Amino acid sequence: MKAAVVTSFTEPLTVEERAVPDPGPGQVLVRIEASGLCHTDIHAAHGDWPVKPTPPFVPGHEGVGIVEAVGDGVRHRAVGDRVALPWLGHACGHCDHCVSGWETLCEEQQNTGYSIDGSFAEYAVADADYAVPVPDGVSPRDAAPLTCAGVTTYKAVKVAGVRPAERVAIFGVGGLGHLALQYARLVGGTVIAVDVEDAKLEMATDLGADHVVNARTEDPVAAIEALGGADVAVVLAVIPQVFEQALASLRRGGRLVCVGLPPETEGPMALPIFPTVLKGISVIGSIVGTRQDLAEVFELHARGRTRVVAETRRLDDVNAAIDDVLQARTTARIVFEP
């Protein structure tokens, strides 16, 4: 099979031939139909984070495809099922986080495309328990970005506790942000989209954003304050300064939801103590979503409540696609179709 492989953190990915893997006990073999390119895949390929994957490995955690074989003991997935392979590739299932509905905090978790080979390939094996069914009416092309960009921002809006008519500022309107603004609107939020690219702000307007702010040409803090301040700010960018701007844009009682993960070299975010305390600001970290969250994301999309903006590429073009994401030459998501 063809696979895009990280062999070194300082070299481009290599597209090579590998043997089709066999599913082990409790696993399924999935023929990949589509796989989204997430910024996390780029961080993985470059070794940007403190806990690094071990080359060689296959990135990709927005994989969608058809089950072609099942390992021993698999009873709830069958050949022919369409499933998604999300970031949470495995969790222990018995720690206090797992049993209380926070499996994404499990300390024994394995992550697709990071600690286990992912979906930048024609085939992938996955833990059958964590391969999430994709319902009829959701195409592989749409399901792929929903598997991470969708469930991550859906969870962020959930944990923010957005209430109807609250102002929600989305900082970074790309692959994740274009979905975040839709989820914020679904729960009744008034959405302010913030980005530095006019094309992305035009997309945000088309998707229903109530206000747009170009942070390249105007001060986003002043612009949001002029609207009354944000009740919630969801940060999807990977620059610490943007987190600081988002915090400063909040009105009293506001909630800052941190989602984007900057490279280790970017340094920390400054958290001013006095305004945080005196304004009663909450700072919330939100990391992807559970299998149940993803099932809800798929259900909403199947009902026509969300729209995925994506362009398709060939897996052979993986390095050019990564460069396009890093140079902001894409409006939303790139999806590889092997």
Rank of each mutant, 00 (worst) to 15 (best):
T7F: 06
F9I: 01
P12L: 01
V30I: 09
T40K: 03
T40G: 05
H43S: 08
H43F: 02
T54P: 06
P56N: 07
H61I: 03
V64M: 10
G71V: 00
H76G: 02
R77L: 02
D81V: 01
A91F: 07
C92L: 12
H97D: 15
S100M: 05
T112D: 11
G113Y: 05
Y114N: 13
G118P: 10
S119L: 11
S119V: 10
A121F: 11
E122I: 11
A124R: 13
D129R: 15
D129S: 14
P135V: 01
L146E: 08
L146I: 11
V151W: 05
V151T: 08
Y154W: 08
A160R: 04
R167I: 11
G174N: 06
L176K: 00
L176P: 00
L176A: 01
H178I: 06
H178D: 03
A180M: 01
A184Q: 03
A184C: 10
R185W: 05
T190L: 13
A193Y: 07
D198S: 13
D198A: 15
M203N: 11
M203A: 14
A204H: 03
T205I: 05
D206K: 14
L207P: 04
D210T: 12
V212C: 14
A215R: 08
E218K: 10
P220D: 09
G228C: 07
G228K: 04
D231C: 07
D231K: 06
V235P: 00
A246F: 02
A248C: 00
L256P: 03
M269R: 05
A270I: 06
P272A: 08
P272R: 05
P275R: 02
K279I: 04
S286N: 02
G289K: 03
L294H: 01
E299I: 02
A302V: 00
A310Y: 13
E311Q: 15
T312A: 15
R313I: 12
R313Q: 15
R314S: 15
I322S: 09
V325F: 14
F336M: 13
F336I: 12
E337S: 13
